[in-house]
């Protein structure tokens, strides 16, 4: 298949590692060539974290700026940054519409990034935007909430909900799996 680059970002502590590994495993279950890399930062929460997944190529897991056909962001501020840097024209931004204010906003020196800011950047860059916000039994399931929309909207060509299911079963302990599968399957 032709190559499909995915760029993911969020804030440390939001569970981007699980999101990215679920996608890598799902793509593998779908029979696609896939590789990825996380920028594991430090343990502390709150810094920017990113992850790259590339489907259909094994040259390198690192995605070039402006070439991600799918951008996934777990937070609104990071969604804006991600789309500006990595989204390919004609691509899609799927983000969880929550805000973890950066220090500058908390200190009152900058304004919080709004959903309108994100939408405007997407319009300028010719990127389709899908914000997600749903009731969840646990805030730690926001990553899987994004996966659910990616599955439903078939945002990753060739990867279906059954593949994501298998991937989550690989990655989650039984006590967490059932709740997350419920979120995945809506």
């Amino acid at each position: 298949m032709s190559r499909f680059d995915i760029y993911m970002s969020g804030v440390g502590g939001q569970g981007i590692g699980l999101l990215s590994e679920a996608i890598i495993r799902a793509a593998d279950y779908a029979g696609l060539a896939v590789c990825g890399v996380d920028t594991h930062g430090l343990a502390q929460r709150g810094g920017m974290v990113e992850s790259f997944v590339r489907i259909g190529t094994l040259t390198t897991p690192l995605v070039r700026k402006g070439s991600a056909k799918l951008v996934l962001a777990l937070e609104r501020t990071e969604a804006l940054r991600a789309v500006e840097l990595f989204a390919a024209p004609g691509g899609t931004l799927l983000y969880y519409d929550t805000c973890w204010q950066p220090l500058s906003v908390r200190l009152g020196t900058e304004k919080e990034t709004s959903a309108e800011d994100v939408a405007a950047a997407c319009a300028r860059l010719d990127v389709r935007v899908i914000p997600v916000r749903t009731e969840l039994p646990d805030v730690r399931m926001q990553n899987v909430a994004l996966l659910a929309v990616a599955a439903k909207e078939k945002l990753i060509p060739g990867v279906g909900v059954e593949h994501y299911e298998k991937a989550l079963a690989d990655l989650l302990p039984e006590r967490a799996l059932q709740g997350n599968l419920k979120v995945l399957k809506g």
Binding site: R45, G66, E84
Partner: peptide, 20 residues
């Protein structure tokens, strides 16, 4: 063939966790 891309936002440094 690629346009230059830049972010309008400053990078977000790591910080100590809630309750640290």
């Amino acid at each position: 063939k690629r346009a230059e891309r830049a972010a309008t936002l400053a990078p977000r440094p790591p910080q100590m966790c809630p309750g640290c």
